[in-house]
Design a protein around this nucleic acid. Structure first.
Lengths: 125, 125
DNA sequence: TGGCTATTTGGCTATATTGCCAAACATGAA
DNA sequence: TTCATGTTTGGCAATATAGCCAAATAGCCA
């Protein structure tokens, strides 16, 4: 976004950016996996790294993105660092995502069935 | 994500990627703005462009990202193309984001108050 | 048809993200 | 202290995003 001057969006720009930071933190397959795993139980980097199968430094960086967004927290236990989910509402968040996916899938099916009754309004596409 | 071979995440990889596509579509200030505006009322590219103040081609591309993710739909009306929100649950989605923001803010406040009772230990929430 | 308006596409540059490796830190144990 | 384990950081190359301009399309209306 750049040249907007007196655009309506400006008034709320800061708010949208703050929200974006949180959403971006979730916008990665590995991080979604982590969130879902941590929801079950706190885990240390090691455990997550094994489950994910990437370099530990990569996992560590993903964790720091999530932590930075305020979605997860950590606690030390000896040489381990356990991460835990701070915001359970995330699951509701994912609920909507799932809904969208189902909706999209249903539409795909309809198209395949030639019941071209698309979404709302007109466009029989 | 790359070298994971027998990692647990693999079984669910496709699912996480599908979810990610939807979340990524929301992960941009301008697109969040668009979603919120369309929730109120369908709008054509022109209207949105004015509110946003960016190049129309930029706005058009943002719209195509959202459409591609299945979040919005469009309908033609003469030479205009009106976009509308297909998935109202998105607002609930944003509700969680807001919750996280408030939680983070509250913590910031606590830190400022020197009540350094940080996160640590399991989720007090 | 030609001219208008609304919108999308292609091209290109600038910037951001991802992921690996190697190196640095931290902590507990010998 | 040294070693071993667990984790984070720095650096770098590969890829993906974002946004602008210019050109291409699409749908009206004379």
């Amino acid at each position: 976004m750049n040249k907007q001057s007196s655009a309506i969006i400006n008034e709320r720009q800061a708010l949208y950016e703050a929200r974006t930071k949180i959403i971006k933190a979730m916008a990665h397959p590995t991080r979604l996996f982590i969130v879902e795993e941590l929801e079950k139980k706190e885990k240390c980097v090691n455990e997550l790294t094994e489950m994910i199968g990437a370099d530990m430094s990569t996992v560590s960086k993903h964790l720091s993105v999530l932590k930075n967004a305020g979605l997860i927290g950590d606690r030390k236990a000896g040489t381990n660092i356990y991460y835990y989910l701070k915001t359970p509402c995330i699951l509701g968040f994912l609920g909507c995502v799932e809904e969208v996916m189902e909706f999209n899938a249903a539409q795909q099916t309809n198209i395949l069935r030639c019941c071209k009754q698309r979404d709302k309004q007109p466009p029989p596409m």
